[in-house]
Design a protein around this nucleic acid. Structure first.
Lengths: 239, 239
DNA sequence: TCAGCTATATTTGTCATACCAATTAACATA
DNA sequence: TATGTTAATTGGTATGACAAATATAGCTGA
Protein backbone atom coordinates (compact mmCIF):
# COMPACT_ATOMS: atom_id res chain seq x y z
CA UNK A 1 0.00 0.00 0.00
CA UNK A 2 1.44 3.33 -0.98
CA UNK A 3 1.99 6.05 1.59
CA UNK A 4 -0.94 8.32 2.20
CA UNK A 5 -2.33 10.75 4.71
CA UNK A 6 -3.75 8.93 7.70
CA UNK A 7 -6.84 6.98 6.80
CA UNK A 8 -7.08 8.43 3.31
CA UNK A 9 -6.64 6.35 0.21
CA UNK A 10 -3.56 7.06 -1.82
CA UNK A 11 -3.73 9.74 -4.44
CA UNK A 12 -3.48 8.61 -8.06
CA UNK A 13 -0.90 11.30 -8.80
CA UNK A 14 1.28 10.17 -5.89
CA UNK A 15 1.16 6.54 -6.97
CA UNK A 16 2.10 7.41 -10.53
CA UNK A 17 4.84 9.73 -9.31
CA UNK A 18 6.38 6.92 -7.27
CA UNK A 19 6.15 4.50 -10.17
CA UNK A 20 7.84 6.95 -12.52
CA UNK A 21 10.47 7.78 -9.91
CA UNK A 22 11.30 4.11 -9.53
CA UNK A 23 11.66 3.71 -13.28
CA UNK A 24 13.79 6.82 -13.67
CA UNK A 25 16.13 5.81 -10.83
CA UNK A 26 16.41 2.41 -12.50
CA UNK A 27 17.62 4.14 -15.65
CA UNK A 28 14.44 3.67 -17.63
CA UNK A 29 14.74 5.86 -19.59
CA UNK A 30 18.42 6.75 -19.13
CA UNK A 31 19.69 10.20 -18.25
CA UNK A 32 19.22 12.68 -21.06
CA UNK A 33 16.57 10.59 -22.78
CA UNK A 34 12.96 11.58 -23.23
CA UNK A 35 10.24 10.29 -21.01
CA UNK A 36 6.95 9.27 -22.55
CA UNK A 37 4.75 12.25 -23.47
CA UNK A 38 2.00 13.40 -21.17
CA UNK A 39 -0.57 12.02 -23.58
CA UNK A 40 1.14 8.64 -23.69
CA UNK A 41 1.33 8.52 -19.91
CA UNK A 42 -2.40 9.24 -19.70
CA UNK A 43 -3.04 6.23 -21.87
CA UNK A 44 -0.54 4.07 -20.00
CA UNK A 45 -1.99 4.77 -16.57
CA UNK A 46 -5.57 5.37 -17.69
CA UNK A 47 -5.87 8.69 -15.94
CA UNK A 48 -6.44 12.32 -16.84
CA UNK A 49 -3.76 14.75 -17.83
CA UNK A 50 -4.26 16.61 -14.55
CA UNK A 51 -3.07 13.59 -12.60
CA UNK A 52 -0.09 13.07 -14.89
CA UNK A 53 0.91 16.70 -14.62
CA UNK A 54 0.81 16.58 -10.85
CA UNK A 55 2.94 13.46 -10.81
CA UNK A 56 5.40 15.17 -13.13
CA UNK A 57 5.38 18.27 -10.94
CA UNK A 58 6.64 16.14 -8.06
CA UNK A 59 9.40 14.64 -10.18
CA UNK A 60 10.38 18.04 -11.46
CA UNK A 61 10.56 19.43 -7.93
CA UNK A 62 12.86 16.55 -7.03
CA UNK A 63 15.10 17.50 -9.93
CA UNK A 64 14.63 14.17 -11.68
CA UNK A 65 13.15 15.52 -14.88
CA UNK A 66 12.87 18.72 -16.80
CA UNK A 67 10.17 19.64 -19.25
CA UNK A 68 10.54 21.63 -22.43
CA UNK A 69 7.49 23.02 -24.13
CA UNK A 70 7.22 21.60 -27.63
CA UNK A 71 10.00 19.06 -27.00
CA UNK A 72 8.90 16.77 -24.18
CA UNK A 73 10.07 15.53 -20.78
CA UNK A 74 13.71 14.71 -20.23
CA UNK A 75 15.47 12.73 -17.52
CA UNK A 76 17.97 14.93 -15.81
CA UNK A 77 21.43 13.99 -14.63
CA UNK A 78 20.03 13.43 -11.19
CA UNK A 79 21.14 15.86 -8.53
CA UNK A 80 19.73 13.65 -5.82
CA UNK A 81 22.01 10.87 -4.64
CA UNK A 82 20.60 7.41 -4.99
CA UNK A 83 19.89 5.70 -1.68
CA UNK A 84 22.82 3.76 -0.31
CA UNK A 85 20.65 0.73 0.24
CA UNK A 86 17.05 -0.26 -0.12
CA UNK A 87 14.87 0.22 2.90
CA UNK A 88 13.10 -2.98 3.84
CA UNK A 89 10.01 -1.13 4.99
CA UNK A 90 8.75 2.33 4.02
CA UNK A 91 8.33 3.30 7.65
CA UNK A 92 12.05 2.92 8.18
CA UNK A 93 12.88 5.04 5.19
CA UNK A 94 12.99 8.30 7.12
CA UNK A 95 15.13 6.80 9.84
CA UNK A 96 17.58 5.26 7.41
CA UNK A 97 17.81 8.43 5.38
CA UNK A 98 18.53 10.28 8.61
CA UNK A 99 21.27 7.78 9.42
CA UNK A 100 22.91 8.21 6.06
CA UNK A 101 22.55 11.98 6.27
CA UNK A 102 24.05 11.99 9.73
CA UNK A 103 26.97 9.87 8.55
CA UNK A 104 27.62 12.34 5.76
CA UNK A 105 27.48 15.29 8.14
CA UNK A 106 29.71 13.41 10.53
CA UNK A 107 32.24 12.77 7.79
CA UNK A 108 32.51 16.49 7.06
CA UNK A 109 33.09 17.22 10.72
CA UNK A 110 35.53 14.38 11.41
CA UNK A 111 37.71 15.12 8.42
CA UNK A 112 38.15 18.66 9.63
CA UNK A 113 38.57 17.43 13.20
CA UNK A 114 41.52 15.31 12.11
CA UNK A 115 43.10 18.37 10.55
CA UNK A 116 42.60 20.49 13.66
CA UNK A 117 43.77 17.70 15.97
CA UNK A 118 46.97 17.36 13.99
CA UNK A 119 47.71 21.05 14.49
CA UNK A 120 46.70 21.28 18.14
CA UNK A 121 47.02 17.92 19.90
CA UNK A 122 49.00 17.96 23.12
CA UNK A 123 51.33 15.06 23.99
CA UNK A 124 48.79 13.85 26.52
CA UNK A 125 46.05 13.84 23.89
CA UNK A 126 48.24 11.93 21.48
CA UNK A 127 48.93 9.39 24.20
CA UNK A 128 45.19 9.09 24.71
CA UNK A 129 44.72 8.48 20.99
CA UNK A 130 47.36 5.78 21.01
CA UNK A 131 45.71 4.18 24.00
CA UNK A 132 42.33 4.11 22.24
CA UNK A 133 43.93 2.66 19.15
CA UNK A 134 45.56 -0.05 21.26
CA UNK A 135 42.23 -0.95 22.87
CA UNK A 136 40.66 -1.23 19.43
CA UNK A 137 43.44 -3.57 18.30
CA UNK A 138 43.00 -5.72 21.42
CA UNK A 139 39.26 -5.99 20.81
CA UNK A 140 39.87 -7.07 17.24
CA UNK A 141 42.42 -9.67 18.28
CA UNK A 142 40.12 -11.04 21.00
CA UNK A 143 37.13 -11.19 18.68
CA UNK A 144 35.20 -8.80 20.90
CA UNK A 145 32.86 -5.97 20.00
CA UNK A 146 34.74 -2.97 18.64
CA UNK A 147 32.07 -0.29 18.43
CA UNK A 148 32.91 1.30 21.76
CA UNK A 149 36.65 1.29 21.07
CA UNK A 150 36.07 2.62 17.58
CA UNK A 151 33.96 5.49 18.83
CA UNK A 152 36.40 6.23 21.67
CA UNK A 153 39.12 6.68 19.06
CA UNK A 154 37.03 9.16 17.10
CA UNK A 155 36.01 10.91 20.28
CA UNK A 156 39.66 11.30 21.27
CA UNK A 157 40.29 13.02 17.95
CA UNK A 158 37.47 15.44 18.66
CA UNK A 159 38.99 15.99 22.08
CA UNK A 160 42.33 16.82 20.50
CA UNK A 161 40.83 19.64 18.44
CA UNK A 162 40.60 21.58 21.74
CA UNK A 163 37.26 22.79 20.47
CA UNK A 164 34.30 22.22 22.75
CA UNK A 165 31.89 22.27 19.82
CA UNK A 166 33.65 19.32 18.21
CA UNK A 167 33.62 17.49 21.53
CA UNK A 168 29.92 18.15 21.96
CA UNK A 169 29.17 17.10 18.42
CA UNK A 170 30.93 13.75 18.84
CA UNK A 171 29.29 13.28 22.23
CA UNK A 172 25.97 13.89 20.58
CA UNK A 173 26.79 11.39 17.85
CA UNK A 174 27.74 8.84 20.44
CA UNK A 175 24.21 8.90 21.74
CA UNK A 176 23.02 8.06 18.26
CA UNK A 177 25.47 5.31 17.43
CA UNK A 178 23.69 2.32 15.97
CA UNK A 179 25.14 -1.15 16.42
CA UNK A 180 26.44 -2.55 13.16
CA UNK A 181 24.35 -5.67 13.63
CA UNK A 182 21.26 -3.47 13.64
CA UNK A 183 22.34 -2.07 10.31
CA UNK A 184 22.16 -5.51 8.81
CA UNK A 185 25.86 -6.12 9.00
CA UNK A 186 27.01 -9.67 9.64
CA UNK A 187 29.41 -9.20 12.58
CA UNK A 188 30.89 -12.68 12.66
CA UNK A 189 33.19 -14.54 10.31
CA UNK A 190 36.33 -13.82 8.40
CA UNK A 191 35.02 -11.04 6.09
CA UNK A 192 34.02 -8.96 9.09
CA UNK A 193 37.36 -9.56 10.77
CA UNK A 194 39.17 -8.42 7.63
CA UNK A 195 36.92 -5.36 7.67
CA UNK A 196 38.08 -4.61 11.23
CA UNK A 197 41.75 -5.17 10.38
CA UNK A 198 41.46 -2.63 7.57
CA UNK A 199 39.81 -0.20 9.94
CA UNK A 200 42.57 -0.70 12.45
CA UNK A 201 45.23 0.01 9.84
CA UNK A 202 43.50 3.20 8.80
CA UNK A 203 43.17 4.29 12.40
CA UNK A 204 46.93 3.94 12.66
CA UNK A 205 47.42 6.13 9.59
CA UNK A 206 45.30 8.82 11.20
CA UNK A 207 47.07 8.49 14.54
CA UNK A 208 50.51 8.76 12.97
CA UNK A 209 49.54 11.82 10.95
CA UNK A 210 48.23 13.52 14.09
CA UNK A 211 51.30 12.42 16.04
CA UNK A 212 53.58 13.97 13.44
CA UNK A 213 51.40 17.10 13.30
CA UNK A 214 50.85 16.57 9.58
CA UNK A 215 47.48 18.27 9.26
CA UNK A 216 46.84 17.59 5.58
CA UNK A 217 47.94 13.98 5.99
CA UNK A 218 45.52 13.62 8.89
CA UNK A 219 42.69 15.03 6.86
CA UNK A 220 43.42 12.72 3.96
CA UNK A 221 43.83 9.71 6.21
CA UNK A 222 40.48 10.37 7.84
CA UNK A 223 38.83 10.89 4.48
CA UNK A 224 40.29 7.64 3.18
CA UNK A 225 39.19 5.91 6.37
CA UNK A 226 35.59 7.09 6.14
CA UNK A 227 35.35 6.33 2.44
CA UNK A 228 36.96 2.96 3.01
CA UNK A 229 34.51 2.21 5.82
CA UNK A 230 31.61 3.02 3.59
CA UNK A 231 32.90 0.82 0.78
CA UNK A 232 33.68 -2.08 3.07
CA UNK A 233 30.29 -1.67 4.68
CA UNK A 234 28.63 -1.84 1.29
CA UNK A 235 30.61 -4.94 0.36
CA UNK A 236 29.67 -6.67 3.61
CA UNK A 237 26.03 -5.69 3.25
CA UNK A 238 25.83 -7.47 -0.06
CA UNK A 239 27.58 -10.67 0.98
CA UNK B 1 15.00 35.97 -12.66
CA UNK B 2 13.78 32.62 -11.45
CA UNK B 3 15.48 29.43 -12.52
CA UNK B 4 14.24 27.87 -15.72
CA UNK B 5 15.22 25.45 -18.40
CA UNK B 6 17.79 27.02 -20.71
CA UNK B 7 16.36 29.97 -22.55
CA UNK B 8 12.81 29.28 -21.44
CA UNK B 9 10.89 31.68 -19.25
CA UNK B 10 10.11 30.43 -15.79
CA UNK B 11 6.94 28.47 -15.26
CA UNK B 12 4.24 30.09 -13.18
CA UNK B 13 3.85 26.95 -11.10
CA UNK B 14 7.56 26.85 -10.33
CA UNK B 15 7.65 30.48 -9.26
CA UNK B 16 4.68 30.03 -6.97
CA UNK B 17 6.12 26.83 -5.57
CA UNK B 18 9.34 28.63 -4.66
CA UNK B 19 7.48 31.48 -3.07
CA UNK B 20 5.36 29.13 -0.99
CA UNK B 21 8.43 27.11 -0.07
CA UNK B 22 10.16 30.22 1.18
CA UNK B 23 7.17 31.17 3.28
CA UNK B 24 6.77 27.69 4.73
CA UNK B 25 10.45 27.41 5.61
CA UNK B 26 10.15 30.81 7.27
CA UNK B 27 7.41 29.41 9.46
CA UNK B 28 4.56 31.16 7.72
CA UNK B 29 2.34 29.34 8.46
CA UNK B 30 3.93 27.32 11.27
CA UNK B 31 4.15 23.53 11.32
CA UNK B 32 0.77 21.92 11.75
CA UNK B 33 -1.13 25.00 10.63
CA UNK B 34 -3.22 25.25 7.50
CA UNK B 35 -1.98 26.85 4.34
CA UNK B 36 -4.34 29.07 2.39
CA UNK B 37 -6.89 27.09 0.38
CA UNK B 38 -6.32 26.37 -3.28
CA UNK B 39 -9.02 28.85 -4.13
CA UNK B 40 -7.47 31.56 -1.98
CA UNK B 41 -4.08 30.93 -3.56
CA UNK B 42 -5.63 31.31 -7.02
CA UNK B 43 -6.85 34.72 -6.02
CA UNK B 44 -3.60 35.67 -4.33
CA UNK B 45 -1.40 34.80 -7.31
CA UNK B 46 -3.98 35.49 -10.02
CA UNK B 47 -3.58 32.12 -11.70
CA UNK B 48 -5.67 29.07 -12.44
CA UNK B 49 -6.21 26.21 -10.07
CA UNK B 50 -4.08 23.95 -12.29
CA UNK B 51 -1.02 26.10 -11.68
CA UNK B 52 -1.67 26.17 -7.95
CA UNK B 53 -2.10 22.40 -7.85
CA UNK B 54 1.19 21.85 -9.64
CA UNK B 55 2.98 24.17 -7.24
CA UNK B 56 1.44 22.28 -4.35
CA UNK B 57 2.42 18.98 -5.94
CA UNK B 58 6.04 20.07 -5.80
CA UNK B 59 5.75 21.07 -2.15
CA UNK B 60 4.05 17.79 -1.34
CA UNK B 61 6.80 15.85 -3.07
CA UNK B 62 9.32 17.74 -0.96
CA UNK B 63 7.44 16.66 2.15
CA UNK B 64 6.65 20.21 3.18
CA UNK B 65 2.87 19.95 3.10
CA UNK B 66 0.14 17.39 3.12
CA UNK B 67 -3.35 17.77 1.76
CA UNK B 68 -6.57 16.44 3.20
CA UNK B 69 -9.67 16.41 1.09
CA UNK B 70 -12.38 18.49 2.73
CA UNK B 71 -9.95 19.87 5.33
CA UNK B 72 -7.23 21.79 3.52
CA UNK B 73 -3.44 21.93 3.14
CA UNK B 74 -1.27 21.50 6.20
CA UNK B 75 2.38 22.29 6.86
CA UNK B 76 4.07 19.06 7.77
CA UNK B 77 6.48 18.32 10.58
CA UNK B 78 8.39 16.02 8.31
CA UNK B 79 10.13 13.11 9.97
CA UNK B 80 13.04 13.61 7.60
CA UNK B 81 13.26 17.29 8.17
CA UNK B 82 12.62 17.24 11.88
CA UNK B 83 15.63 18.61 13.73
CA UNK B 84 17.91 15.91 14.99
CA UNK B 85 18.95 18.02 17.93
CA UNK B 86 16.20 17.82 20.49
CA UNK B 87 18.16 18.70 23.57
CA UNK B 88 20.53 21.68 23.73
CA UNK B 89 24.19 20.85 23.95
CA UNK B 90 24.99 21.54 27.60
CA UNK B 91 28.60 22.46 27.00
CA UNK B 92 27.76 25.07 24.44
CA UNK B 93 25.71 27.31 26.67
CA UNK B 94 26.67 30.97 27.28
CA UNK B 95 30.41 30.69 26.90
CA UNK B 96 32.40 33.11 24.81
CA UNK B 97 34.86 30.43 23.83
CA UNK B 98 31.93 28.21 22.85
CA UNK B 99 30.88 30.79 20.32
CA UNK B 100 34.23 30.70 18.59
CA UNK B 101 34.26 26.90 18.73
CA UNK B 102 30.80 26.79 17.23
CA UNK B 103 31.91 29.05 14.41
CA UNK B 104 34.81 26.74 13.71
CA UNK B 105 32.56 23.69 13.71
CA UNK B 106 30.10 25.52 11.55
CA UNK B 107 32.82 26.40 9.08
CA UNK B 108 33.73 22.73 8.64
CA UNK B 109 30.11 21.87 7.98
CA UNK B 110 29.33 24.78 5.69
CA UNK B 111 32.39 24.33 3.54
CA UNK B 112 31.38 20.75 2.89
CA UNK B 113 27.75 21.82 2.48
CA UNK B 114 28.78 24.17 -0.32
CA UNK B 115 30.54 21.29 -2.02
CA UNK B 116 27.54 18.98 -1.70
CA UNK B 117 25.11 21.68 -2.76
CA UNK B 118 27.12 22.32 -5.90
CA UNK B 119 26.82 18.66 -6.85
CA UNK B 120 23.18 18.20 -5.90
CA UNK B 121 21.23 21.43 -6.03
CA UNK B 122 18.01 21.29 -8.01
CA UNK B 123 17.01 24.22 -10.20
CA UNK B 124 14.43 25.18 -7.62
CA UNK B 125 17.04 25.22 -4.89
CA UNK B 126 19.38 27.32 -6.99
CA UNK B 127 16.52 29.72 -7.58
CA UNK B 128 15.94 29.81 -3.86
CA UNK B 129 19.61 30.64 -3.30
CA UNK B 130 19.44 33.44 -5.81
CA UNK B 131 16.33 34.75 -4.13
CA UNK B 132 18.04 34.75 -0.73
CA UNK B 133 21.06 36.49 -2.22
CA UNK B 134 18.79 39.12 -3.76
CA UNK B 135 17.08 39.75 -0.43
CA UNK B 136 20.45 40.14 1.24
CA UNK B 137 21.46 42.67 -1.42
CA UNK B 138 18.20 44.55 -0.93
CA UNK B 139 18.69 44.68 2.81
CA UNK B 140 22.23 46.01 2.35
CA UNK B 141 21.03 48.66 -0.10
CA UNK B 142 18.20 49.70 2.19
CA UNK B 143 20.46 49.89 5.22
CA UNK B 144 18.39 47.28 7.00
CA UNK B 145 19.41 44.39 9.21
CA UNK B 146 21.01 41.58 7.23
CA UNK B 147 21.37 38.80 9.77
CA UNK B 148 18.15 37.07 8.77
CA UNK B 149 18.91 37.32 5.07
CA UNK B 150 22.48 36.18 5.65
CA UNK B 151 21.38 33.16 7.59
CA UNK B 152 18.65 32.36 5.06
CA UNK B 153 21.31 32.22 2.36
CA UNK B 154 23.37 29.73 4.37
CA UNK B 155 20.29 27.78 5.24
CA UNK B 156 19.39 27.52 1.55
CA UNK B 157 22.81 26.03 0.91
CA UNK B 158 22.20 23.44 3.62
CA UNK B 159 18.83 22.80 2.02
CA UNK B 160 20.48 22.21 -1.34
CA UNK B 161 22.67 19.42 0.08
CA UNK B 162 19.47 17.35 0.17
CA UNK B 163 20.76 16.02 3.45
CA UNK B 164 18.44 16.34 6.42
CA UNK B 165 21.34 16.32 8.87
CA UNK B 166 22.80 19.43 7.27
CA UNK B 167 19.41 21.10 7.35
CA UNK B 168 18.96 20.22 10.99
CA UNK B 169 22.41 21.45 11.85
CA UNK B 170 21.78 24.82 10.25
CA UNK B 171 18.39 25.05 11.88
CA UNK B 172 20.02 24.39 15.21
CA UNK B 173 22.61 27.08 14.51
CA UNK B 174 19.85 29.49 13.59
CA UNK B 175 18.38 29.18 17.04
CA UNK B 176 21.76 30.14 18.39
CA UNK B 177 22.37 33.07 16.10
CA UNK B 178 23.65 36.01 18.06
CA UNK B 179 23.00 39.51 16.76
CA UNK B 180 26.22 41.16 15.64
CA UNK B 181 25.51 44.14 17.85
CA UNK B 182 25.56 41.77 20.84
CA UNK B 183 28.97 40.59 19.72
CA UNK B 184 30.31 44.08 20.16
CA UNK B 185 30.15 44.87 16.49
CA UNK B 186 29.33 48.43 15.53
CA UNK B 187 26.53 47.89 13.05
CA UNK B 188 26.29 51.42 11.76
CA UNK B 189 28.58 53.54 9.63
CA UNK B 190 30.61 53.08 6.49
CA UNK B 191 33.06 50.40 7.72
CA UNK B 192 30.16 48.08 8.53
CA UNK B 193 28.52 48.77 5.21
CA UNK B 194 31.76 47.91 3.41
CA UNK B 195 31.85 44.72 5.47
CA UNK B 196 28.37 43.84 4.19
CA UNK B 197 29.25 44.65 0.59
CA UNK B 198 32.21 42.28 0.81
CA UNK B 199 29.95 39.62 2.27
CA UNK B 200 27.48 40.15 -0.54
CA UNK B 201 30.20 39.72 -3.16
CA UNK B 202 31.40 36.50 -1.55
CA UNK B 203 27.84 35.21 -1.38
CA UNK B 204 27.65 35.74 -5.12
CA UNK B 205 30.86 33.77 -5.65
CA UNK B 206 29.38 30.87 -3.71
CA UNK B 207 26.07 31.12 -5.55
CA UNK B 208 27.71 31.11 -8.96
CA UNK B 209 29.89 28.14 -8.10
CA UNK B 210 26.84 26.19 -6.95
CA UNK B 211 24.88 27.32 -9.98
CA UNK B 212 27.61 26.08 -12.27
CA UNK B 213 27.87 22.85 -10.27
CA UNK B 214 31.56 23.56 -9.62
CA UNK B 215 31.90 21.65 -6.37
CA UNK B 216 35.52 22.49 -5.62
CA UNK B 217 34.95 26.14 -6.51
CA UNK B 218 31.95 26.21 -4.16
CA UNK B 219 34.02 24.75 -1.35
CA UNK B 220 36.80 27.28 -1.90
CA UNK B 221 34.36 30.18 -2.21
CA UNK B 222 32.70 29.22 1.07
CA UNK B 223 36.06 28.80 2.77
CA UNK B 224 37.19 32.21 1.53
CA UNK B 225 33.90 33.68 2.65
CA UNK B 226 34.09 32.29 6.16
CA UNK B 227 37.74 33.23 6.57
CA UNK B 228 37.02 36.68 5.17
CA UNK B 229 34.10 37.12 7.54
CA UNK B 230 36.25 36.21 10.50
CA UNK B 231 39.00 38.61 9.47
CA UNK B 232 36.58 41.44 8.81
CA UNK B 233 34.88 40.72 12.08
CA UNK B 234 38.16 40.93 13.91
CA UNK B 235 39.04 44.20 12.17
CA UNK B 236 35.66 45.71 13.06
CA UNK B 237 35.87 44.49 16.63
CA UNK B 238 39.09 46.35 17.14
CA UNK B 239 37.99 49.60 15.55
C1' DT C 1 20.25 15.35 -54.81
C1' DC C 2 20.61 18.63 -51.21
C1' DA C 3 19.85 22.82 -48.62
C1' DG C 4 16.72 26.22 -47.05
C1' DC C 5 12.22 27.81 -46.06
C1' DT C 6 7.46 27.33 -44.72
C1' DA C 7 3.54 25.04 -43.00
C1' DT C 8 1.89 21.63 -40.05
C1' DA C 9 2.00 18.61 -36.19
C1' DT C 10 3.44 17.68 -31.64
C1' DT C 11 4.27 18.75 -27.00
C1' DT C 12 4.01 21.37 -22.76
C1' DG C 13 1.90 25.44 -20.14
C1' DT C 14 -2.10 27.51 -18.61
C1' DC C 15 -7.02 28.33 -18.26
C1' DA C 16 -11.85 27.18 -17.34
C1' DT C 17 -15.57 24.25 -16.05
C1' DA C 18 -17.56 20.27 -14.00
C1' DC C 19 -18.26 16.56 -10.84
C1' DC C 20 -16.94 13.42 -6.99
C1' DA C 21 -15.39 12.41 -2.22
C1' DA C 22 -14.27 13.82 2.40
C1' DT C 23 -14.71 17.15 5.92
C1' DT C 24 -16.63 21.08 8.25
C1' DA C 25 -20.14 24.44 9.34
C1' DA C 26 -24.82 25.78 9.87
C1' DC C 27 -29.40 24.84 11.03
C1' DA C 28 -33.46 22.51 12.83
C1' DT C 29 -35.50 19.59 16.20
C1' DA C 30 -36.08 17.04 20.44
C1' DT D 1 -28.05 21.73 25.09
C1' DA D 2 -27.29 17.73 22.28
C1' DT D 3 -28.04 15.33 18.10
C1' DG D 4 -29.05 14.61 13.40
C1' DT D 5 -29.53 16.50 8.83
C1' DT D 6 -28.35 19.51 5.23
C1' DA D 7 -25.50 22.76 2.96
C1' DA D 8 -21.03 24.60 2.18
C1' DT D 9 -16.18 24.09 1.77
C1' DT D 10 -12.10 21.83 0.36
C1' DG D 11 -9.16 18.75 -2.27
C1' DG D 12 -9.03 14.98 -6.17
C1' DT D 13 -9.89 13.96 -10.78
C1' DA D 14 -11.72 14.58 -15.47
C1' DT D 15 -12.45 17.04 -19.79
C1' DG D 16 -11.93 20.48 -23.27
C1' DA D 17 -9.73 24.55 -25.07
C1' DC D 18 -6.12 27.64 -26.47
C1' DA D 19 -1.29 29.64 -26.40
C1' DA D 20 3.68 29.09 -26.84
C1' DA D 21 7.70 26.57 -28.12
C1' DT D 22 9.73 22.99 -30.68
C1' DA D 23 10.08 19.24 -34.08
C1' DT D 24 8.92 17.34 -38.41
C1' DA D 25 7.22 17.00 -43.03
C1' DG D 26 6.85 18.87 -47.45
C1' DC D 27 7.96 21.99 -51.07
C1' DT D 28 11.07 24.78 -53.87
C1' DG D 29 15.23 26.26 -55.97
C1' DA D 30 20.07 25.62 -57.01
Amino acid sequence: MKASVKGQKPRLATEIEEDLRTRILAGQPPVGEKLATERALCLTYGVSRTVIREAIAGLRAAGLIESRRGSGLFVRASSVQAPLWQAPMPEMQAEIVAIVDTLELRAAVEIEAAFLAATRASPGQIAQLRSCHQRFAEAVAAGEKTEAADFAFHQAIAEATNNSAYRSFMEYLGKRTIPRSKLGLETTGEPYRAYLVDMQSEHLDILEAIERHRAEDAREAMQAHLLGSLERYRALSQS
